[in-house]
């Protein structure tokens, strides 16, 4: 459980950081809060030759809120989100989801960019990114570009990032007032990785019908999922008990979880339905 040997660099500019990653033949790792990477080093599941510490890069910090939406710098920590009262209205779903991330010691260190790059299939931030059609801005040796969340997550601990790329920020589209939403997570203990979680939101028209429904789940596949089949159940309908029951069934039918040491596939399938149902009840309340 001692860390393997590696070199360490702490660049002060983004180009310098990209350069360090680009010249290490894919053998370097960027480190932000270290809450996933350091345990992986301790278990020697990761043995990079170089750690590039992002802590001195000023461009990666800060939460910006504008008419276009919420932008989270990659080095924003969970604690920054929890403490930002503007987010109560600017993005309540984000705030509710992040409250489930690990324990406060981890929340003081763990970062938005680190979680996205690590891409744990049960992590909340990737789930919110998927559910909310987020854009992930990255910079690499060929310059800056934007990756849609739907293209970013490619499998368990696998993303579209190339070894020289660093996440700069994540942009969540604007959150209109009056949007209905719910977030439900179940973990065996508070702060554990989610057995599953569901994030839902929709907007309502003048007749009380839902549109623009977004339903995302984590913990049931190799990456966070959107569930279009459930969204189809919701769009154009008033969200009542009948529709919620249909959505629950559609959610269970839409996922194909595997057995693992913490839960059976059948249980997880039912759990996703239950969490979608409860999130929708909360949204409709």
């Amino acid at each position: 459980m001692k860390l393997p040997p590696f070199d360490y660099a702490c660049p002060t500019t983004l180009p310098e950081a990209v350069q360090l990653l680009a010249t290490s033949n894919g053998d370097a790792k960027a480190i932000a809060g270290g809450q996933s990477l350091v345990p992986m080093l301790a278990f020697r599941l990761a043995q990079p030759s170089l750690l590039v510490d992002l802590r001195k890069l000023p461009d990666l910090r800060g939460i910006r809120i504008s008419a276009k939406g919420v932008t989270l710098g990659a080095m924003v920590r969970w604690r920054d989100i929890e403490d930002d009262e503007r987010l109560d209205t600017a993005h309540p779903l984000l705030k509710a989801a992040i409250a489930h991330v690990a324990h406060y010691q981890v929340r003081n260190r763990g970062t938005v960019g680190g979680s996205l790059a690590h891409a744990d299939p049960a992590a909340e931030m990737p789930g919110i990114a998927m559910t909310c059609d987020a854009e992930i801005a990255v910079v690499g040796k060929s310059g800056a570009h934007v990756i849609q969340a739907a293209d970013f997550f490619q499998g368990a601990l696998t993303t579209a990032l190339t070894p020289d790329e660093i996440i700069v920020e994540i942009r969540l589209p604007a959150w209109p007032a009056g949007r209905r939403w719910g977030f439900e997570e179940f973990a065996r203990r508070r702060g554990d990785f989610a057995m599953a979680a569901a994030a839902v939101f929709y907007d309502q028209d003048a007749n009380g019908k839902a549109h623009n429904a977004h339903v995302g789940v984590i913990g049931v596949a190799d990456r966070p999922l959107r569930l279009p089949a459930v969204e189809d159940v919701l769009n154009g309908r008033a969200i009542d008990a009948t529709i919620i029951a249909k959505a629950e069934a559609a959610a269970s039918a839409a996922v194909d979880p595997q057995d693992d040491i913490h839960a059976s596939a059948a249980y997880r399938r039912a759990l996703v339905g239950t969490l979608v149902e409860r999130a929708l009840k909360r949204a409709a309340a």
Partner: peptide, 16 residues
């Protein structure tokens, strides 16, 4: 052994 860390071997914590 599939439960080789305290992330997988779950013990009661203060809030449980």
């Amino acid at each position: 052994l599939l439960t080789g860390s305290l992330a997988d071997y779950l013990i009661p914590t203060a809030s449980d």
